[in-house]
Every structure is written in structure tokens, then in C-alpha cells.
């Protein structure tokens, strides 16, 4: 493979990384917001969120990306491809993250909550200072795992013509007529990125394990 081809691959990797990274970050926050709203059990809102989570988890990313790309203009929204990709990935990952956060919330030890309230904290203070820090640590392994899943589904954005790390291999082989080397090289780059995430996950598991002691 030529130097040019490697440069293209790295550009593709960059597209994969920043789109997935941004969607992951937004998905973390939105997921937490959904989880908190759901624990409040507001009628109607709770049902709507439950349906949202269930639908978003069941919809393949390819379908979602294509849907947003084609349907947004009919609703008068003009989003460029990148925006569509980010929104779709965020919708997808926030639904999975919401379930992870919610589990952490529901499993939070009751006695700690009682102790905090008994010592005069308001529920908001208790949440911010007692619950959230621990929920972050216990959820971290699941959240990192979800990032890995998001990264592995991110090639879905190729369907609207974005040139990510997978799609770029087509670009390269269109010139060289040799598809195998760029695909194998892309696979290698994915393996490097994902092994970093797996490393992070095992670190997160150690931290969570220490908290459980």
C-alpha cells in the first residue's frame, strides 16, 4: 500500500473516531437525563421514554441513519451528512446508556440514601454528591462497553456516503483495484482502537470492583 493510501485510511479513521466520540459523549449525558426522567415516573413522559428507548434499541443504525438523512428534509430540516450521522449515533447510544444508568440508579444502596437524607442533605445535594459519583464508577464498565459497540456499528454511516474507516477502503481500491490490502489495514486500525477501549474497560472494572468492596 502506498503512503497516499495510508493517509486516506487515517483520515477515515479520524472520521470514525470523532463522529463516534462526539456521539458517545452526547449519548452519555442524554442517556443519564433519560434515566433520571424515568426514575421520576412522570405519567405519559415515562411511557414515551420507555417506547423511545425500546424503539431506538431495536432499530438498526443503518436504517436509522438512512431514515434521518432522507426524512429530515421532508420535515423542513436541513442537516448535512455529518450532522445526520452524529444525531443517529447519539439516538442509538443514548438509549443503551439510559438503561445502564437506570440500572445503576435502581441498584443504588437504599441505606446510603437514607443516611444522606438523615444527615440533612436535600435530595439534589444527595444526588450530586453521594449518588452520582458512585453511579459513574459502577456504570463505567457498561458505558465503555457501549462505546465499543457504538464504534463497531459506526460503519453504518457509510450508507449515506460518509467516508469512514470502512468505506475509505472502497475509495482506495477504486484506484488500486486491490481491495484486500486496504480492508486488512482498516481491520488492523479497528483492532488497535478497540483494544484501547477494552483496556479502558478492564481498568473501569477494577475501579468498580474496588467500590464494591
Amino acid at each position: 500500500m502506498t503512503e497516499k493510501a495510508w493517509m486516506l485510511l487515517l483520515e477515515g479513521a479520524w472520521v470514525t473516531l470523532w463522529i463516534s466520540g462526539l456521539a458517545s459523549a452526547m449519548g452519555l449525558v442524554i442517556g443519564l437525563a433519560i434515566a433520571l426522567l424515568r426514575t421520576a415516573r412522570i405519567p405519559v413522559v415515562d411511557q414515551i421514554l420507555a417506547v423511545y428507548v425500546s424503539l431506538a434499541r431495536a432499530t438498526p443504525l443503518v436504517t436509522l441513519v438512512l431514515f434521518l438523512f432522507l426524512a429530515a428534509p421532508t420535515l423542513g430540516l436541513s442537516l448535512d451528512r455529518y450532522a445526520v450521522a452524529i444525531v443517529a449515533l447519539t439516538i442509538n447510544t443514548s438509549a443503551f446508556n439510559a438503561e445502564i444508568w437506570r440500572t445503576a440508579f435502581l441498584n443504588f444502596p437504599r441505606d446510603q440514601q437514607e443516611a444522606a437524607l438523615a444527615s440533612g442533605m436535600t435530595p439534589a445535594t444527595m444526588f450530586a454528591n453521594i449518588m452520582l459519583p458512585q453511579m459513574i464508577i459502577t456504570s463505567l464498565p457498561g458505558l465503555v462497553n457501549e462505546m465499543t459497540f457504538l464504534l463497531k456499528s459506526s460503519p453504518a454511516i457509510a450508507i449515506i456516503g460518509l467516508v469512514d474507516l470502512t468505506r475509505v477502503t472502497n475509495r482506495i481500491s477504486a484506484v488500486t483495484y486491490e481491495p484486500l490490502p486496504p480492508i486488512l489495514a482498516a481491520a488492523l486500525i479497528y483492532m488497535v482502537i478497540i483494544s484501547v477501549l477494552l483496556k479502558l474497560q478492564s481498568l473501569a472494572e477494577k475501579m468498580a470492583g474496588r467500590l464494591a468492596m
Binding site: L151, S154, P155, A158, T166, P179, M191, S195
Partner: peptide, 22 residues
């Protein structure tokens, strides 16, 4: 472990486009 570190589409590309080179 390799499969677990790859997106599904990359394997599909490998079989569909990559192997045609061979």
C-alpha cells in the same frame, strides 16, 4: 478476539470485496 474487535461490516467487506482479489 479478532472478530470481537472488528465491526461486522469490515468482515462483510472482506468476504465480498476482499476475497474477489484472490
Amino acid at each position: 478476539n479478532t472478530m470481537r474487535a472488528l465491526p461486522f461490516l469490515v468482515l462483510a467487506y472482506l468476504l465480498y470485496y476482499g476475497l474477489s482479489q484472490l
